[in-house]
Design a protein around this nucleic acid. Sequence first.
DNA 1: ATGGTGGTCCTACCA
Length: 270
Amino acid sequence: MNLRISTWNINSVRLRIGLIERFVKDVSPDVLCLQEIKVDDPLFPADAFHDMGYKYHAVAGQKGYHGVAILSRIPIKKWERKNWCDKEEARHVIATLDCGPKAGIDVHNFYIPAGGDIPDPDKNDKFAHKMQFLDDVSAWFRNEEDPKKAKILVGDLNIAPSEHDVWSHKQLLKVVSHTPIEVEKLAILQDSLGWVDAVRHLVPEPEPLFSWWSYRSKDWRVNNRGRRLDHVWVTKPLQKGLKAMQIDDDTRDWVRPSDHAPVTVDLDLS
DNA sequence: ATGGTGGTCCTACCA
């Protein structure tokens, strides 16, 4: 059995439901993970997703800000929303898919805090929050979760780890999303369960890969000042099944686009 | 060095 999973920071699910329909028509993922849905649970457009074939969903919504959702054509056995850093922010939802091994596959969908502008936790509460979030999630995976189980972690992690994940390593070293301390914290998170970066496993460096281009940059395709902020990771039991990945950056040129492009990975579960 | 754009929801705040 093949599993196609996509992750997309959609920046308002209600405003861009038409773009999602177009993407689903083209790519047809079995599981679609969204971030920044910017809507509370009662107003989530579940019917539209049902019409696209996603009969199962796990939604952690919030009014106006954040919000993550997992839409699935594969039955969801159970799901859960998790809050971090003693905040009620909707940044993490977990769904267990009824496929693959007997216990199923856990999908973790994250929207990690962006972290504000100044990369100093003493001067910037938002950056301190980002650091704490990464520490707490890393400790939780390390202490509570089993690296031998089949798991997928996706989302807008708001960190571009390598020099080939940004348009200019040198010019972004002091820019939040690519600072050494963030890259180190992301490495610790990756180490917590021995996560494999599925996208880089399939398309190794030095190939540049970006999934986000600022709304503020004109001629984004010409200047190509992108960053790879959106990620798909898998635990070791799923590594051998990694088949293909794609970043659909054509979506960045659609009318009223998200500033992020969807990242899709194909996994062979047989 | 600065400001550039876009979302929510109506006034700033967030990215």
